[in-house]
């Protein structure tokens, strides 16, 4: 019961991130929105593991964290060298 409430909160946070992803004026806002979406995915994975006791997916979290970070750095380099400007 608690886990499902928490997962709903993480899903709403992911929805807010997608709103910013769609609306976001600049490319950098969209990259930040993607990061928050990844973060809510990681939170939902953790809460699901705590709720059901099935810890098969916990190893996925490190992969998501590192991939999210690499994507942010790559996108910021892309923005910075001038090709990301509208």
């Amino acid at each position: 019961m608690i886990a499902s409430i928490a997962i709903v909160c993480f899903v709403v946070s992911g929805a807010c991130a997608t709103i910013r992803l769609l609306v976001g004026p600049g490319l950098a806002d969209r990259v930040a929105a993607l990061d928050v979406a990844l973060m809510s995915l990681m939170g939902a994975i953790v809460v699901r593991a705590a709720g059901t006791g099935d810890t098969a997916y916990i190893n996925l979290l490190v992969v998501i964290a590192i991939i999210g970070f690499t994507a942010t750095v790559a996108a910021s380099q892309f923005i910075e060298n001038g090709r990301g400007r509208e």
Binding site: A65, T72, I79
Partner: peptide, 12 residues
């Protein structure tokens, strides 16, 4: 790692 990435976004 993530605050560093977001800091790069700030700089960009």
């Amino acid at each position: 790692t993530l605050p560093v990435g977001i800091h790069l976004l700030f700089r960009a």
